[in-house]
Simulated scan of single mutants.
Amino acid sequence: MTRIDDTGHPARPATRTPGTEPPTLVVGVHLVLLDEGLVLLGWRRNTSYANGLWHVPAGHMEPGETVTRSMTREAEEELGILIAEHDLTLVHTLHHLDADDGRSRLQLFFRPARYDGRVRNAEPHKCGELRWWPLDGLPSNTVPYTAHALGEIVRGGTLSTVGWPA
């Protein structure tokens, strides 16, 4: 016999423990600038995460922003370039379980169709150097999930996971 709830609809079994909240995801945005088989990476310094490692220009969504606005803001802040939101293409989504803090993170990798301005290191206090690297020759001290995502992008993979138990 089907139980009816107080709204007159069939009752649904509980899918989570009462009083628990759904998981909160941290959303990261990453810019994949490519030029003839080379990708732009920045060497992180004076940062709380991945200090001394190479990483694509990246940041986090801020409250009230769309993911595309977050990416255009980060591109302007870090590289001094302007990108129209409609010129961004999502090229990879990575669901990452961070071993350092145990948080679930959704890492979105965007490639711009075009941008205005000249790429420059607009945050030298956080980035020691910008350099173009061959996609098949990334430095050994690249942020591991970044190296993974770039490899997936080269292979045409649009979705992957890292850090989750098998």
Rank of each mutant, 00 (worst) to 15 (best):
T2Y: 03
I4W: 01
I4R: 00
T7V: 02
A11H: 08
A14D: 15
A14M: 13
R16L: 10
T17I: 15
T17A: 13
T17C: 08
T17D: 07
P18A: 14
G19P: 03
T20P: 08
P22R: 13
P22H: 13
P22L: 15
P23C: 03
V26H: 09
V27T: 15
V27A: 05
G28K: 08
H30Q: 14
H30K: 13
L31K: 05
L33S: 06
L34W: 02
L34M: 11
D35F: 04
E36N: 12
G37L: 04
L38I: 00
V39Q: 05
L41P: 07
L41D: 06
G42L: 10
G42S: 10
G42F: 03
W43F: 15
R44Y: 00
R45T: 14
T47A: 12
Y49M: 05
A50Y: 15
N51H: 14
N51C: 13
G52V: 10
G52C: 03
G52H: 12
W54F: 15
H55E: 15
H55V: 10
P57W: 04
A58S: 15
G59T: 02
M61C: 15
E62T: 10
E62G: 11
E62C: 01
P63F: 12
P63D: 10
T66G: 14
V67D: 12
V67C: 07
R69A: 14
R69C: 04
M71F: 04
T72K: 03
R73N: 12
R73G: 07
E74N: 07
E74P: 01
E74R: 12
E77L: 12
L79K: 07
I83F: 09
A84L: 11
A84M: 04
H86N: 14
D87V: 00
D87P: 06
H92Q: 08
H92A: 05
H95P: 00
H96R: 01
L97R: 13
D98Y: 00
D100Q: 12
D101W: 02
G102E: 09
R103F: 07
R103L: 14
S104C: 06
R105C: 11
R105H: 05
L106N: 11
Q107M: 14
L108W: 02
F109C: 04
F110Q: 10
R111Q: 14
P112G: 04
P112I: 03
D116N: 08
G117E: 09
G117N: 04
G117C: 08
R118C: 07
R118K: 14
R120W: 02
R120C: 13
R120D: 11
N121K: 01
N121L: 09
A122T: 01
E123P: 00
H125V: 06
K126V: 06
C127F: 06
G128R: 13
R131F: 03
W132S: 05
W132T: 07
W133V: 02
W133T: 00
W133K: 02
P134C: 05
P134V: 02
L135V: 11
L135N: 00
D136I: 00
L138S: 01
S140F: 08
T142C: 10
T142A: 08
V143Y: 04
V143W: 06
Y145T: 14
Y145I: 02
A147T: 05
H148D: 04
H148F: 14
L150N: 06
L150C: 07
L150F: 02
G151H: 04
E152N: 11
I153R: 02
V154A: 12
G157E: 15
T161E: 13
V162T: 10
P165N: 04
P165T: 08
